[in-house]
Amino acid sequence: MFYFTIIGTSDNPIYEAEFTTAKNTFQPEIKELNPYIVHSTLDIMEYLQWQRQPQLDINTSSGGFLRSRHSTQENSYLGKVDSFYGLAVSGFLTYGNIKFIMVHGNGTVDDTVTRSFYYEVYELYLKTLMNPFYKVNDPISNSAFDSKVRVLSKRLFV
């Protein structure tokens, strides 16, 4: 099970969704904590946002990612950035510093699947943004966006 959010520029979520199946759902006590876990991960994301090489050292509770040191290395997809008692949290930064954060209920982050998921959602976000009536930081309440994201989320369960 997964909990996905898009966070705007002032810590406010502009989109949230839970991806669950009949077998995989969040425990109620975790479920109510999810938004706050994501909020706390913002500390780490902000730290990584401006690092030249976004590699985590001891300043987080768990391991890093992206071992390569190339200066042209991508710094949008951050991989697993944090963990919280058995849950893993992954993050993605857009060029406008909007943050996509997802809580992985099974404690692991599959980089390839998650990365492609983020890319697809980013494209959807951009299309929403291109709408002149949509202001940055507005909640995305369009149902088409929602349905498309849910279709994409199916890939995460493989």
Partner: peptide
Amino acid sequence: SEGLTRFRKYSLYQLV
């Protein structure tokens, strides 16, 4: 102070 504090983590643990 962006990214150089852990204030939100502090708040999360206070909440828990």
